[in-house]
């Protein structure tokens, strides 16, 4: 078949489908609403995961590692070690807390000032405070960094307050799995809604299909507008889901930013972007097409012209 003919047919099918959707605005809107809401949930969960990931990235600076040097290591040597630590991959910043400074802080915040006065010498070691780079704040990277420092001969102990990061990442893994489950379930829902809508449309247009086949319309020709209708439903649903999510993100941005600032983070809630948008729209349209195709295959077969 000539390319021009094919283009003409597809254009006709597309505009035919658009026209029919526009002629029944209420029914179309209701169907789109159902599809849109079904797409919102998995998309919202996905957005939650992505924002949580970038938020912990932002909180990476709050994750730090205290490297306690052995008692005999001098402050001068501690400074040298700090320079070496700074050169380790995955390290963003290193500061030296001298034993004296540590004691001062401890006296100030602990309320044990009097008890400390009773000590003849400073019991605290020099400490390196390591801030990992955000991308090295994952549980595995932090553990690797901890081992590196623990293996140094001057190091007595490495304390890593990463338990919450690990738990948080575990929670994220659960939510991520939830996204997959929700995507499958709601995807099946979208498939069913579109399939049923197309089924009703096929039954409504039975006469037209019969006459079309009578004058030589092929199955592909008869099916094409329904496939476009399904794809348009998917596209419309995805568009609606996107609008809903964008609105929700806009509404949440200020309170989330406030919350983040209380944690000392400049984190800003983000909406869907790039690849996620492609997945939402591509997935919506693919589901629409597939739902229509399954339905058309099932129901068009039975419609043959009777004279």
């Amino acid at each position: 078949m000539a390319l021009g003919t094919l283009t003409t047919r597809h254009t006709q099918a597309l505009f035919g489908a658009l026209g029919r959707l526009a002629r029944a605005p209420l029914a179309t809107a209701l169907t789109l609403l159902v599809i849109g809401l079904a797409l919102v949930l998995p998309a919202a969960l996905g957005l939650l995961v992505r924002n949580a990931e970038s938020a912990t990235g932002g909180f990476g600076h709050a994750v730090d590692m205290s490297v306690y040097l052995k008692r005999g290591v001098s402050l001068a040597r501690a400074r040298e070690l700090a320079v070496e630590a700074r050169a380790e991959p995955g390290v963003a910043a290193v500061s030296v807390i001298s034993a004296a400074a540590g004691l001062r802080q401890f006296r100030q915040y602990s309320g044990f000032g009097a008890a400390l006065d009773a000590l003849k010498s400073n019991p605290l070691p020099n400490v390196l405070r390591i801030v990992p780079q955000p991308r090295s704040s994952g549980p595995a990277a932090l553990e690797a960094l901890r081992r590196t420092f623990a293996s140094w001969p001057e190091v007595g102990m490495v304390q890593l307050d990463a338990q919450w990061v690990l738990r948080f990442n575990a929670i994220l893994a659960v939510v991520r799995r939830l996204v997959s489950i929700a995507a499958v379930l709601f995807g099946a829902g979208v498939l069913a809604v579109i399939g049923n809508t197309i089924r009703l449309e096929i039954l409504n247009r039975r006469d037209e299909i019969e006459v079309t086949k009578l004058v030589g319309g092929s199955n592909a020709f008869v099916r094409r507008p329904f496939l476009y209708t399904g794809t348009l439903y998917g596209l419309g649903g995805a568009l609606l889901a996107w609008l809903v999510l964008e609105t929700a993100v806009l509404g949440l941005q200020a309170p989330v930013a406030h919350l983040a600032s209380l944690y000392g983070s400049g984190f800003v809630l983000a909406g869907l972007a790039g690849r996620e948008l492609a997945v939402l729209f591509g997935g919506g349209m693919a589901l629409g097409w597939l739902g229509a195709w399954i339905s058309a295959r099932r129901h068009l077969r039975g419609i043959e012209p009777r004279a």
Binding site: T8, V211, L214, V215, G216
Partner: peptide, 29 residues
């Protein structure tokens, strides 16, 4: 084929009804 009961599409204007065989054949507009 001409039918006794015409088999016209009631919701389409005359033009669309007559054009149908050409549309299914992929004739340019």
């Amino acid at each position: 084929v001409v039918f006794q009961d015409h088999k016209l599409l009631a919701d389409r204007p005359v033009f669309d009804n007559v054009a149908l065989p050409l549309v299914v054949a992929g004739t340019p507009l």
